[in-house]
Nucleic acid binder design. Structure first.
Length: 478
RNA sequence: CGAGGUGUAGCGCAGUUGGUAGCGCGCUUGGUUUGGGACCAAGAUGCCGGGGGUUCGAGUCCUCUCACCUCGACCA
């Protein structure tokens, strides 16, 4: 489409200014509104509906694997937060504190949870006594607060919605199994539901979660070639258990420390959807997380019979998909643009000509492809077309990631890639943190992960030239 | 926390050497329209971010302050 006509004037083209494009979409698609509190966002109905679809499916998968939902307090006493040393140090700089209740100063200040490890641990110490009590597989849906300096809707806000799973196990093996199980749950969810391909791997020591033994991650690549950490799963070993005294008696009547995991994804996933699938006309939603899967736009709706037919179609479609009929008196062209901006995967046009031919016009959001379908075949065709779109979005995202994944054997090569195309860079690493830091300082790129799928690019570390231990994915990240 | 930018109607903006506020979009009403953001007519909407100053007079000048945005250092 060389001479593609620009239908939507309100959105900054992504090649011109990607950051502005992102901000435009978030606002023009009615996902969020900025709030009166710096760095916080008002999630509007359309944005929240996407979150609800994400929640619904993830929650189903969590329950299917034996997890139970709980709710922990929003406040953490300072003394509790400080029990695990590395953990506090990691979070201290971005914690918000409550110092007063009404007009009285609190004896001990309370932290607004930035994450709930300490609360779960404190609770687990109370309820775990015997190996018979294990495992405990808890999850909570809540919001957390991190006093960020630079904020962007969905990607980084002071308060954000997420889910945090916290589990306790008898053995290290079980904890490790759980850590990877949940990482896989996230990975398949992203790929099947959000149509976002991910790289699974382990974080380096430098990048891992404060207090964890090991952190695993799914990394995805945005349209502009920057990486986004899309979900993490941590194995805590028995570190937190030792700090909080979570012990149980095993079958031999010996006192043992428990092993723990935690894992989370947040509304950041919505940012990923925007930046992976969106285009210059606006948002593009994969059908499975689209609050509206099909929008019906009547044409010449003043003509006798058109609206009646539209209502009838809405009724029929609502039995098998999420459908909206826009019967407002806006021009059809206006509606086309509006729902493209909002990323509705499929548009159904129906007008006098269609009624005469007993057909409707389906138009795919992703490429504006028109499909003429007989009115008698909607139940069969629409779900099929939605599936095609879902698959096509995934394939496009995968192709894009592949086209933006490079190999490098020298720092010059890496830097050149980062300064020109930008994307994931596969390069060898000796395992020394000094090299990781050197790369970061020189080109502002971080080690995204040590992928499970290893590949030998060369024998030597890209930085120091010593013998390489792992292949890493590098990139600039959000 | 560093560097830059912006605050005037719901949104986007204009506002000259200082003279008491305007345009576009949107909104309301009526009519004509409807296959890619229609048109005509008539309306409604302002603590000019906030405080203090200069002045006969401040959206405009000075000063302090607050908020937000963007880009960097740290983080889901």
């Amino acid at each position: 489409m060389a001479q593609e006509k620009k239908f939507v004037e309100a959105i900054t083209p992504m090649n011109e200014d990607f950051a502005q494009w992102y901000t435009d979409i978030v606002k023009k698609a009615d996902l969020v509104e900025y709030s009166s509190v710096k760095g916080c966002m008002i999630v509007r109905p359309y944005g929240y509906a996407i979150w609800e679809l994400i929640q619904k499916e993830l929650d189903r998968r969590f329950k299917e694997t034996g997890h139970e939902n709980v709710y922990m307090p929003m406040f953490i006493p300072e003394s509790l937060l400080q029990k695990e040393k590395e953990h506090v140090e990691g979070f201290a700089p971005e914690v918000a504190w409550v110092t007063h209740g009404g007009s009285e100063r609190l004896a001990e200040r309370l932290c607004v949870r930035p994450t709930s490890e300490t609360l779960f641990c404190d609770h687990y110490a109370n309820i775990v006594q015997s190996y018979r009590d294990l495992p405990k597989l808890y999850n909570q849906w809540c919001s957390v607060v991190r006093w960020e300096k630079t904020t962007r809707p969905f990607l980084r806000s002071v308060e954000f919605l997420w889910q945090e799973g916290h589990t306790v196990h008898a053995t290290a093996e079980e904890a490790q199994e759980e850590t990877l199980r949940m990482l896989n749950t996230y990975a398949s969810f992203c790929e099947d539901y959000l149509a976002i391909p991910v790289i699974k791997g382990q974080k380096t020591e430098k990048e891992k979660f404060a207090g964890a033994k090991a952190t695993y991650t799914i990394e995805s690549l945005m349209h502009d070639g920057k990486a986004l950490q899309s979900g993490t799963s941590h194995n805590f070993g028995d570190g937190f258990a030792r700090a909080f005294g979570i012990q149980y008696l095993d079958k031999e009547n010996k006192l043992q420390y428990a092993h723990q995991t935690s894992w989370g994804v947040s509304t950041r996933l919505i940012g990923a959807i925007i930046m992976v699938h969106g285009d210059d006309s606006g948002l593009v939603l994969p059908p499975r997380v689209a609050p509206i899967q099909v929008v019906i736009v009547p044409v010449s709706q003043h003509v006798e019979g058109v609206l009646d037919k539209a209502y009838e179609l809405k009724e029929r479609l609502s039995r098998f998909c999420r459908v909206k009929l826009d019967d407002s008196d806006k021009m059809p062209g206006w509606k086309f643009s509006e729902y493209e901006m909002r990323g509705v995967p499929l548009r159904l046009e129906v007008g006098p000509k269609d009624i005469q031919k007993n057909q409707v016009v389906l138009v795919k959001r992703e490429n504006r492809e028109k499909i003429f379908v007989s009115m008698d075949e909607l139940e069969a065709r629409i779900p099929q077309v939605l599936d095609e779109i879902q698959a096509s979005l995934y394939n496009k995202a995968l192709a894009h990631r592949e086209s933006r994944t490079f190999k490098a054997t020298t720092l010059d090569e890496m830097e050149n890639i980062l300064n020109t195309t930008q994307g994931f860079i596969k390069a060898m690493w000796c395992g020394d943190e000094a090299c990781e830091k050197a790369v970061k300082e020189r080109m502002a790129a971080t080690a995204r992960c040590i992928p499970f799928e290893q590949e030998k690019i060369s024998d030597h570390c890209v930085c120091c030239g010593k013998e390489a231990k792992h292949m890493l994915y590098w990139g600039r990240a959000y």
